[in-house]
């Protein structure tokens, strides 16, 4: 419990490397009888660079799983003690993905998830204005997915009334 993993997977295994995505996943222990996870997208909320854990990762503790259909999932143990940081323009986030410094306009996006036959299944991504609290007790201010750099709260949100159909 409380352990973090760097998780690599493919959005569309047929199209290969170009669809590889990364999520940072923490197991939060059980909540209302089901396991609870924090699943943060590595896409920076400034302009979309890949945020990195501020802390060590342990490549010698890597697990690779083929889940069928060409999908290949890699889990690497890590310890983002200082949250997450972006290499591009220095955006900083805490462990819940809340911005602590730099140019990002909101918190890091997250993944929906479900549990099926004891497996964790990632769903769609959504945008997050902020997170109060932490772990399984966190209150997540959730919005529909917006592009990096687009405000979803505050007066600037009037600039982004519409999103193109996906």
């Amino acid at each position: 419990m409380g352990e973090w993993k760097i998780v690599h997977f493919f959005l569309d295994p047929n199209q290969g490397d170009v669809t590889r995505r990364t999520a940072y996943i923490r197991y939060n222990g059980p909540l209302n009888g089901a396991p609870s996870f924090t699943i943060i997208s590595n896409r920076c909320a400034h302009l979309g660079c890949p945020v990195q854990p501020n802390g060590p990762s342990f490549p010698d503790q890597t697990k690779s799983i083929d889940t069928g259909g060409g999908q290949h999932v890699t889990l690497i143990k890590m310890l983002p003690a200082g949250g997450f940081g972006c290499p591009c323009h220095g955006g900083q986030y805490d462990q819940e993905g809340n911005r602590t410094a730099g140019p990002p306009v909101r918190s890091l996006d997250r993944y929906e998830y479900s549990i099926r036959n004891g497996h964790l299944i990632l769903g769609k991504t959504f945008s997050v204005a902020k997170v109060k609290g932490s772990g399984k007790d966190a209150i997540i201010y959730r919005y529909r997915l917006a592009g990096p750099g687009q405000h979803i709260t505050g007066w600037e949100q009037i600039f982004y009334p519409l999103q193109p159909p996906q």
Partner: peptide
């Protein structure tokens, strides 16, 4: 790759039309 990600997302922050330009 990443410079283009940033460039496209920069266009994405243009008021109103940005998300469509990025798309």
């Amino acid at each position: 790759y990443w410079a283009t990600v940033v460039g496209i997302n920069l266009n994405g922050t243009v008021p109103f039309l940005g998300p469509y330009i990025a798309q």
